[in-house]
């Protein structure tokens, strides 16, 4: 009852904050500046057709490659960070009660620190440290994504149904063996599908890395936008879409295999 009341209060406060924020918008001046409509029209009309000349397709393909490579390498780093820290943070494998809480706190704190900083900020830091090298892009992606993956892995491993674990325990399985035979197989399908979802996000993030000068689709988009070559922009966006769709297809293939 008390919880319900405080929940209601919270909802009310949030709704109030939203309404109040509306007063911050300057409703008097038009939201779209003069000429904005025309610019938007030019941009969208450039989709018919996008620039499909062999030359530019070559450029787009060449730009797709580093974006995909950074996303794959970044996700690899993220998974390598996420699995050990996520397992520790789930608090399910450290059997000594004296160590469990410290281990969970330290790992949760590190995960929190990794994902509190946006990948672009990491990118600025790493470009400053390593220059415009692939390493900067891969680490800038891998660290915050590792923080996100670790946190979700920890939750998924922690929140598996307790009944199969209890049954394993009565079969003589220690917490570590329950982890291997219960938690991991029970959480794995969700862990994999979340990782794939994050892989899609990593592709978008890898493209955005161009804002700090790293090569890839985003960099080309920026160049074409500067030259107002909207048809080229659309080609690049379609390549982007293609990548994401491919990852999505791959992900559903893997998930179907897992369910079979």
């Amino acid at each position: 009852m008390k919880l319900l009341e405080s929940r209601g209060l919270l909802t009310l406060a949030l709704a109030g904050a939203f309404l109040w924020s509306l007063t911050g918008v300057d409703w008097g001046s038009p939201l779209i500046h003069t000429g904005g409509g025309a610019a938007a029209r030019t941009f969208f009309l450039a989709l018919f057709p996008p620039d499909l000349s062999p030359d530019f397709l070559g450029v787009a393909l060449a730009a797709t490659w580093p974006t995909l490579a950074y996303a794959v390498a970044g996700m690899t780093v993220a998974v390598l960070i996420g699995i050990p820290l996520g397992i520790l943070a789930s608090g399910t494998v450290v059997s000594s009660p004296a160590l469990r809480l410290p281990a969970a706190l330290v790992s949760r704190f590190s995960l929190g620190g990794l994902r509190a900083i946006h990948e672009l900020v990491w990118a600025v830091l790493f470009v400053a440290a390593f220059g415009l090298s692939p390493l900067a892009a891969v680490l800038a992606l891998g660290l915050p994504y590792g923080g996100i993956l670790g946190r979700i892995y920890a939750e998924l491993l922690h929140d598996v149904p307790p009944e199969p674990l209890r049954a394993l325990r009565t079969a003589g399985a220690s917490p570590m063996r329950q982890f291997l035979y219960g938690r991991v197989p029970l959480a794995l399908p969700d862990m994999i599908s979340y990782t794939f979802y994050r892989f899609e996000c990593a592709i978008r993030s890898a493209a955005i890395m161009s804002f700090v000068g790293i090569q890839g689709l985003g960099y080309q988009i920026q160049l074409s936008l500067h030259d107002l070559l909207f048809r080229q922009v659309w080609t690049l966006l379609l390549f982007m879409l293609l990548l994401v769709v491919l990852v999505d297809q791959w992900s559903s293939l893997v998930r179907r295999k897992l369910a079979a």
Binding site: E163, P164, R166, L168, R169, A171, R177, L186, L258
Partner: peptide
């Protein structure tokens, strides 16, 4: 709990409580 007890006592549970994905 593991080794010794498991040799003496085992249990079958209401919903069998197997790990379905294994």
């Amino acid at each position: 709990p593991g080794k010794e007890l498991a040799r003496l006592v085992g249990m079958v549970h209401q919903q069998f409580d197997l790990v379905g994905s294994l």
